[in-house]
Design a protein around this nucleic acid. Structure first.
Lengths: 195, 195
DNA sequence: CGCAGACCTGCAACAGGTTCTAGGTCTGAC
DNA sequence: GTCAGACCTAGAACCTGTTGCAGGTCTGCG
């Protein structure tokens, strides 16, 4: 993909990529305004100045669209954590730091979080790969924070923490969080597993 | 509600209750055949020999219907556990027993489980009470099994186990279980938290 | 009796996710 | 130059959850 000079940037491929980004932006914008239900495919397409058919060319369903947005966010979060690693002397503290930073981002905008988490739990075989990708990001973040912990079953701890994290998000965004911040709840879990 | 003798059983009230039960049965039957998508409201109504409007009189949405079915199943499971308490000398073993018995029931019919779990994670404020009820059942089962455990934060352990359980079900029914049985995975979690 | 209210049926209609069709433009290969 | 294929638009059409309406039946109460 380099032999023939691809002319200049801003050609076809770049335009399509831009369109795709616009679509995700539009979806996030609508989600911010009214949550999952407000993300209507016709509106997403209109807001991104794209035909409905084109939206479906890029994302095979509403949930795939939201999952793509979620994957983006997870990847961004992971990048941030790599750029500025979690602080804390002990593994438990570093895990708490990761969870605190993540929760802050998520709680900032409950509607968006709710929409994305809803998509994460949708019943659709085609969504499995993206779900796996999201989980992979979360696990990697926890794994980094736990680096050097002296537990027998590191993988098991990451697994349990990951499940607790995800399920906590789901219940929290359903309004079943009992008002407790996600990070508080999750730090307790980390404490139980690591001390 | 007792002054005037209510005539004999089998009157109006009993009929409506029977109709409601038929509706849940129909939903479970369709779910067994094709999962969440196969549970179509018109079909549920037809299979239960009931008008569509009547279905909506009893269950305000498809997800409420499936959640009612889920609540039933959870209550049944809990009853069974009370009738025949979890076996095991240590709390960890009893928890493992609970999870094993529950998982056996769930894995017997993946399509049904998938449909019910999907409903559990749906984005709908009206569903919150039933979700809370389901969680309450799960927590109670774990609490019973953990009776007498000597951990500092019993409530915290139950919370983490509950989240792990629910999230494991969700991923498992999306086909992301990596082929490992749910109970295996969950027993490891219990081990980590209790030993 | 006669009426209100609860519950049921059958069916039309609406809403939003998804699919399909018909037709445009651009790009790279022969 | 021209043909195939990728990608886009506009819009109709379809499917299924959900709502609304116009009646029916039964029950309890005055």
């Amino acid at each position: 993909m380099s032999a023939s000079t691809p002319r200049r940037t801003g050609t076809r491929a770049a335009e399509t990529a831009a369109r795709k980004a616009r679509l995700i932006d539009a979806a996030l914008g609508l989600a911010a305004e009214g949550g999952y239900d407000a993300v209507q495919m016709r509106d997403v397409a209109a807001r991104a100045d794209v035909a409905l058919g084109t939206l479906y060319r890029h994302f095979s369903s509403k949930d795939q669209l939201l999952l793509a947005a979620l994957l983006d966010q997870a990847a961004t979060l992971r990048d941030n954590l790599e750029r500025r690693p979690p602080a804390g002397a002990t593994p438990a503290e570093r895990v708490a730091d990761v969870l605190r930073r993540a929760s802050r981002a998520l709680e900032r905008d409950p509607r968006v979080t709710g929409a994305l988490v809803t998509a994460l739990f949708v019943n659709d075989a085609a969504a499995a790969p993206i779900k796996a990708g999201v989980r992979e990001h979360l696990m990697a973040m926890l794994g980094t924070a736990l680096d050097g912990a002296d537990v027998d079953d590191l993988e098991g701890v990451v697994d349990v923490l990951g499940h607790t994290w995800i399920s906590t998000m789901a219940f929290w965004s359903s309004g079943l969080g009992d008002g407790v911040s996600m990070s508080t709840r999750l730090e307790r879990a980390a404490h139980l597993l690591l001390d």
